[in-house]
Structure formats: C-alpha cells, structure tokens
Computed example of a mutant assay.
Amino acid sequence: MLQHWLLDTDSFAVPESLCTFQQSIPLEWVQQAFELTNKSSIRRRKLPAKLVVWLVVAMGLFRDRSIAEVVSKLDLSVQNAAGDTVAPSAISQARQRLTYEPLAKLFGITAQHWALQEDSHDTWHGLNLFSVDGTLFRTADTDELATHFGRIKHSATRSTVYPVARLCALSSLRSRLIPDVVFGPSTEGEVTYAKQLVGKVPNHSLTIFDRCYLSAELLVNWQRAQSGSHWMVPLKSNTKYNILHRYSDHDFFSGNGCICACP
C-alpha cells in the first residue's frame, strides 16, 4: 500500500514550480527548524542555509534535473554586487554544511501542521485513522552504502544488485500524509523499525497494521503509549491463540481473520 502511494506521488504530485510548494511552508517553519538544530548563521553566503533547504526540497520534486539546473532554474542563489553567482562546486559544500538535521526537523514540523489540518475533522467513530507499512528503496551502488544498508540475500550465492534501504512509515489513511517515518539498513526487519514509531500517533486513534507486524511487544506498547490508542492487524492463517477475555463484541473479529485491541 505504502509503495503504491509513493509511486502515485512520484507520478502525479510534481508541481509546475517550487512556488506552489513554498506557499505551504511558511518561512517561520524553516527558521524554527534551524533554531531547533542550532544551525542559524549570521555569515552571508551566496547560497545560504535557508536557500539550501529549498534546494533539497526541489531536488526531491524535480529528480529529472541536475542539481546545478535546479539552482539556476529556481533562482535559488544570491548574487554579489559584481553579479557573480554561486559556483557549481559550492552547491555540494552548501549541502554538507546544512546536514540532515534541519530537514528532519522541518519534516516533523510540516507533518504535524498538515496532518492536524487535514485529518482533525475526518475521523471514524471519533478516531483518527492511520496505517503502518514498509517498503524498500534501491540506493547507489557504492561500497559505503553497501556496508551501511546492505543487500538482501535471495540465496547463499544470490543477492540484490544494489544496496537496499528499508523504510517504515506511519501514514494517515484519510489524507495519505506521513506524520513520521524511520529507515535504515535492510538487514533489520519492519517490526524493528515500527517499534521506533510507538507513541507517534495522537490520542483517540486506530492504526491498521499489516500481518507481518503481529508482534506482542510492538502492539502492547503501541496500545500503552496512548490511553485511547487502538490497533488492528490481520491474523496469519497459522496463528495459534487463546481468548482470555472479551470486553465487548468489538474486541475480536474471528470471521474476517482480524484481531484488534481497545484499551
């Protein structure tokens, strides 16, 4: 499901210009991200940090263009009195100075505002609806990425050609916004990454898990993190269980192969 949503975004959600996207991200959010990561700078550069943020966002939106072209076409650079603009070599240096931290904070800020705006009034029986799902991404074939992310082995002698990163996302079932996401080496399973999302859903919510997330540790902690946090997960056909107690007819559905928990 998550993979299909991401493919839809890649195919249909590319804006005609970055201005369309900038209108939804106030400059105050960008400044807040810098302040939370202590990345504010008073030094004037041809490509200052705030513009590098927009550069990274634009790189994700316009993946069919080179980085230098994105800088030029979107007029992200600053000129001095002589009219000199940023050199191509300075672009990668500016990205390295920025690091990932302000962008991670900005992602969290935008997700919090957008999800609240889109989902607060679109509920089911008073519950906000979410899902947890994972997918895989191929990375560039370098030794460094292969060491960090690893390759998925199909057999003792066969594995994926490219290094593979595993991603696990908490998604809104109503708006398809992603309030939070974790990713890392493909050698770790989806349940391991899903545990890092415990406590990320708001109170009074229902989270749908795929059958691969049938983990007592994950689901019990998910329920305990919020007093009104509910979950539902399909049962595997070979799952063995004992019903200890039924609090209501809604606690367990044996007919459709799903189990749910309500605190």
Rank of each mutant, 00 (worst) to 15 (best):
V56N: 06
A58K: 07
H4P: 07
Y193L: 06
E217L: 04
C19I: 12
W5M: 10
A94E: 06
F149M: 02
S89C: 09
T37M: 05
L206R: 11
S155A: 05
S41C: 07
C212W: 07
V57M: 15
D122Q: 13
G134K: 05
F252P: 13
S120C: 02
L218D: 03
S172T: 14
A156N: 07
C19F: 11
I208C: 14
V198K: 00
C212F: 07
C168K: 01
V56S: 07
H250Y: 12
Q226R: 15
V191Q: 04
T85P: 06
G108P: 01
N80W: 15
G228R: 08
N256W: 09
Y100E: 11
Y100D: 13
D75G: 12
P179F: 04
S120K: 02
C212D: 07
R246M: 12
L74A: 14
K236C: 07
L219H: 08
T99I: 05
F130W: 13
N256K: 02
A169E: 10
L47G: 09
S11P: 00
A49W: 05
L103S: 04
N128E: 13
F149C: 02
G189P: 03
W124I: 04
T9W: 14
P234S: 01
S11T: 11
I25E: 02
T157P: 04
Q22V: 02
P185V: 01
A111G: 05
A140C: 00
T142M: 00
L173A: 08
L127V: 01
T9L: 09
D133N: 08
S229G: 15
Y100G: 02
A261H: 15
A68G: 08
R246Y: 09
P234L: 02
D249E: 12
T160R: 03
H230R: 13
I109F: 03
S92L: 11
N128I: 02
V14Q: 12
D119Y: 09
S92M: 08
Y213I: 01
T110R: 03
G150L: 00
L145H: 03
Q223D: 05
N80H: 10
L167F: 15
A115K: 01
D249K: 14
N128F: 10
P179M: 02
K195H: 12
S40P: 01
R63S: 14
R151M: 01
S248K: 11
V78T: 12
L218F: 08
P102T: 00
S92R: 15
Y241G: 06
Q31Y: 08
H245N: 12
T142P: 03
